[in-house]
């Protein structure tokens, strides 16, 4: 009933608890994505002093492509998993009512 919405209970059933934690994970996803995609910033760039001096080898483009596209695909995969979970809830933000077909 409407009461559920206006005054959400502090303690939830196991199922609702899981759902909320999953939503937390979903909120975390873009942060993880940003972190993963910021990693290439740490690689030595081809025009950096160390590479020019020959101390470190520059990351080849093929490796960069593999890493970035791999990370990208991984994020998409996680997003699919979360989407599937959300699909099972039916209604993402309202407790399921008992006895509802």
């Amino acid at each position: 009933m409407n009461d559920d919405r206006s005054s959400p209970s502090v303690f939830l059933e196991h199922q609702s608890y899981r759902r909320n934690r999953l939503a937390d994970a979903a909120r975390l996803l873009p942060v993880i994505g940003a972190a993963v995609l910021a990693v290439p910033l740490l690689w030595p760039s081809a025009d950096s002093a160390q590479v020019v001096a020959g101390e470190v080898e520059a990351v080849p483009m093929s490796t960069a492509i593999l890493y970035i596209f791999g990370a990208w695909a991984g994020l998409i995969g996680l997003s699919v998993v979360f989407g599937m979970a959300a699909r099972r809830w039916g209604q993402p933000d309202g407790p399921q009512r008992p006895g509802q077909g």
């Binding site: 690689w43 760039s45 025009d47 520059a58 990351v59 080849p60 483009m61 490796t63």
Partner: peptide, 13 residues
Amino acid sequence: IDASEIGQWQMKS
């Protein structure tokens, strides 16, 4: 790709 002129990671962060 690696052999080309853009074959190395080169990025302005």
